[in-house]
């Protein structure tokens, strides 16, 4: 079974330490959510896993082969239509033109993009549509490791629910491992098998929560209640910058 194993990862930008002593395991078919305040190094960690940044020190082992990334911004090629943008990864895998366009169109349709939208250039699409194109591009290559950097933040609620279902379907069918960054605790509670809380300066993992209920059985009520329960925990409150204000009031060091 494929696995991503990170031990004692440190990363510095110049003299500033942005990540310190990160240990992390991710197995095939597992959804791991990274939660934490802005600037705690979540995106840096994701870029390192994606191979876009070389960490200052780390023991990093990954047996995943096909990796896909969804960045915070859609990062679409402005000179390609939505369809060709979705098919980009397939083209890199040398899938023949007709087949890759068929597969891209199918995936686009599941994302709620019709053939007219798919013929448009990115600047003609709304922000939500661009995010969906970017997600479709990532799923098109049937990755075994999917890295998501707040991919759902520009979407409305109904659409989010559909894409959550699509993502979980992907995980079940292909055993895709997902490492996702989010600011939305409820989103993490709905999707993740494990939630890792990060704290800034330097970025480090401070708390881990395991959710044992399978994703398909998580009702809205369950999600609300679990999120509310989590918000009572000290480590989670720190992660959202809620406990710090009280600390400052209490004169903590």
């Amino acid at each position: 079974m494929s696995v991503l194993q990170i031990r004692d990862l440190h990363h510095r930008y110049g003299a500033t330490e942005v990540l310190a002593g990160i240990d992390l395991d991710l197995h095939a078919g597992e959804v791991l959510a990274l939660l934490g305040p802005s600037g705690c190094g979540k995106s840096t960690l994701l870029h390192i896993v994606a191979g876009l940044l070389i960490p200052s020190e780390a023991s990093l082992h990954s047996s995943f082969n096909r990796l896909s990334c969804v960045f915070q911004e859609p990062r679409l090629m402005p000179w390609k239509t939505a369809l060709d943008n979705i098919a980009l990864g397939l083209k890199a895998q040398r899938v023949a033109r007709v087949e890759r366009r068929t597969r891209a169109a199918e995936l686009g349709a599941r994302m709620g993009l019709d053939s007219e939208d798919l013929d448009k250039y990115p600047h003609e699409l709304s922000g939500g549509m661009q995010s969906r194109v970017s997600l479709a591009r990532a799923l098109a290559t049937r990755p075994d490791l999917l890295l998501l950097d707040e991919p759902f933040s520009a979407l409305d609620v109904g659409l989010k629910a559909e894409l959550y279902a699509l993502l979980i379907d992907q995980v079940r069918r292909f055993g895709t491992a997902v490492l996702m960054i989010t600011h939305d605790l409820m989103e993490a509670v709905r999707l993740a098998d494990r939630i890792l809380m990060m704290a800034p300066e330097p970025g480090r993992l401070v708390h881990e929560v395991s959710l044992d209920t399978v994703q398909e059985a998580r009702s809205s009520t369950w999600v609300y209640q679990s999120s509310a329960a989590l918000m009572q925990e000290e480590a989670v409150r720190i992660g959202f910058g809620l406990a710090q204000a009280e600390d400052a009031g209490g004169g903590a060091p």
Binding site: G51, L67, S68, C69, F71, L88
Partner: peptide, 13 residues
């Protein structure tokens, strides 16, 4: 650079 990073992450030849 962001597009280039994206392209790199998709292992574009």
């Amino acid at each position: 650079n962001k597009l280039r990073d994206m392209a790199r992450s998709y292992r574009l030849p």
